[in-house]
Structure formats: C-alpha cells, structure tokens
Deep mutational scan, measured.
Amino acid sequence: QTQEFDNEEEARKAEKELRKENRRVTVTQENGRWRVTWD
C-alpha cells in the first residue's frame, strides 16, 4: 500500500505508526513529494 505526503514530517509520522504495527515500511522522496509504502 502507498500513501503520499507533502512533507517529510507527515511521512515520518505515518512511518512511525506503521512500524508500531510491525509492518515493513519504505519512505521515498520523489518530485518533492514523500511516499510511504508498506506491506
């Protein structure tokens, strides 16, 4: 699953929550947008 964010702060917040659920999370930056991908 993927979700896009406008800034790193929001993306990192989402990453932190997903990691609490023991998910594999990848955060990438593309064209000024932050993308959080998880399984």
Rank of each mutant, 00 (worst) to 15 (best):
W34G: 00
A14W: 15
T26N: 07
N7F: 05
D6Q: 06
Q3A: 12
E8N: 02
E17G: 06
G32N: 06
V36S: 01
E4I: 15
E21N: 12
Q1G: 15
T2M: 14
K13D: 12
N22E: 06
T26S: 09
Q29Y: 15
A11R: 00
V27P: 00
K13Y: 12
E9L: 11
K16V: 12
E21S: 12
K13V: 14
E21A: 13
D6H: 05
G32W: 01
E21L: 14
R23M: 14
V36T: 01
Q3W: 15
T2Y: 15
R12A: 04
T2R: 06
E9V: 09
E17Q: 13
T37A: 10
D6E: 11
N22T: 05
R35N: 08
Q3M: 15
E17T: 09
N22G: 15
E4D: 09
V27I: 09
K16G: 10
R33I: 11
D6C: 09
W34D: 00
R24L: 13
E30Q: 10
Q1I: 10
A14S: 08
A11E: 00
K16N: 13
E15I: 07
N22H: 13
E9N: 09
N7Y: 07
K20R: 13
G32L: 04
E4K: 03
Q29P: 07
D39A: 05
V36D: 03
Q29C: 10
N31W: 03
R23H: 15
A11L: 02
V36N: 01
N7V: 06
E9W: 13
D6L: 08
N22D: 10
V25D: 00
F5T: 01
A14P: 00
R24A: 09
E21P: 04
W38H: 09
E21D: 11
R35D: 04
E15V: 08
R12L: 08
T26E: 11
E10W: 04
A14M: 14
E8M: 04
R33T: 07
E10L: 09
A11I: 01
D39G: 08
N31V: 02
E21G: 12
R19N: 08
R24P: 07
N31Q: 06
V27R: 01
R19W: 11
N31A: 06
R24G: 09
E10H: 05
G32P: 01
T2E: 08
G32D: 08
E9R: 08
Q1L: 13
E15N: 01
N7H: 06
L18I: 05
E10M: 08
T28V: 11
E8F: 04
R33K: 14
T28S: 13
Q3E: 09
A11M: 02
E10F: 04
F5I: 01
R19Q: 11
N31F: 05
N22K: 10
G32V: 02
N31T: 03
A11V: 03
Q1M: 13
A14I: 11
W34N: 00
E10A: 10
R35S: 08
K16M: 13
E15W: 05
E9Y: 11
E8L: 05
R23S: 10
A11W: 02
R35C: 10
Q3V: 12
Q1Y: 15
D6M: 06
D6N: 07
Q29V: 12
E8P: 03
T37I: 12
W34S: 00
K13W: 13
E10P: 02
V36R: 00
N22V: 04
R19T: 08
K20W: 04
R12M: 08
G32T: 03
T2I: 12
E30K: 06
Q29E: 14
R33S: 07
D39Q: 10
A14E: 03
N22I: 04
E21T: 13
N7S: 14
A14D: 01
R19A: 10
W38E: 13
E15F: 06
W34V: 01
F5N: 01
T37R: 10
E4P: 02
R23N: 13
T37M: 10
E30H: 11
L18G: 03
N22F: 14
E30P: 02
K16S: 12
